[in-house]
Write a protein that binds this DNA or RNA. Structure first.
Lengths: 142, 142
DNA sequence: CTGCTTGCAAATAGTTTGCACGTTC
DNA sequence: GAACGTGCAAACTATTTGCAAGCAG
């Protein structure tokens, strides 16, 4: 897993970035982390190893690594939400690039809900489906 | 649509709530709103009609109306996110009640992605699928 | 009159930014 | 020695909370 960090640092360098100490510590924490963590949790782990690394640096690094496609960000959405009246159920397509939110009704989501209920004992709220991706006009760009 | 507001106020009252001026204005703004808006946007619309209604009141009302099942909240998640290395793709089941996040691999999501791509020209990022609902142990409770 | 509601101000959480200095290539 | 990255502190955004006063039922 040290080599995994090295591999990543190599590709960071090859795209014009620097292999700094802070970045290495952050990557090490990331590679040895459980399957997911928040930026704050990551900062905590980083600071256990290298107290001088500031939380802002963690955020900046996550952002840079995201640009390079090395990490990805899952929005769990504790904050900033949309509100609807309860009488119309639909799904939301959110464009990652332009922020456009589109409402759709797709039957395939019901299949997913069924699979999750029977196979995983998880009872999805169909009204809350949010799908992140790229809309047609943004799919080309970075 | 005035009657829709009255209907809602009636059901608020029948569950021990009061039909206040602020609440009526908020509901009117909500009923005549476009398909979705943020709490802030709603507060703006409310304050255009009744400037003395405070933003905190809008938040408190949305929360109360959510408890009653009159409105629902879609987390679009601009803030508070989880970070992963890019090399494992999976979906996230988030329990609305206990906050538990579970990782799964469900083929049915690929079907959804295909439908969205062909039918809606929307290119979903399969790694970012987040499904909100109730896990098995929370599905009974309010 | 009882207690749900409100307005206000202040607190919070998570994240971002400006700036000057330090490091890496 | 340029460009990139960092530490620090301060700003920001969306939201929540404590409290005293205000209305609804």
């Amino acid at each position: 897993m040290a080599s995994q960090v090295d591999d990543i640092l190599r590709s960071v360098r090859s795209s014009g970035g620097r292999a700094t100490v802070a970045r290495r510590v952050i990557l090490e924490a990331l590679v040895s982390a459980p399957n997911h963590l928040t930026a704050d949790e990551l900062a905590e782990r980083v600071q256990a190893k290298a107290p001088e690394v500031h939380t802002a640096t963690v955020y900046r690094n996550l952002d840079a690594l995201k640009e390079l496609g090395i990490v990805y960000q899952v929005h769990l959405g504790v904050r900033s939400s949309y509100w609807h009246l309860s009488n119309d159920a639909h799904q939301h397509l959110v464009c990652d690039a332009c922020g456009l939110v589109r409402h759709v009704q797709v039957a395939a989501f019901d299949d997913v809900a069924t699979v999750l209920a029977t196979g995983f004992d998880f009872h999805a709220d169909v009204r809350h489906f949010v799908v992140v991706g790229r809309c047609g006009s943004c799919v080309g760009h970075a």
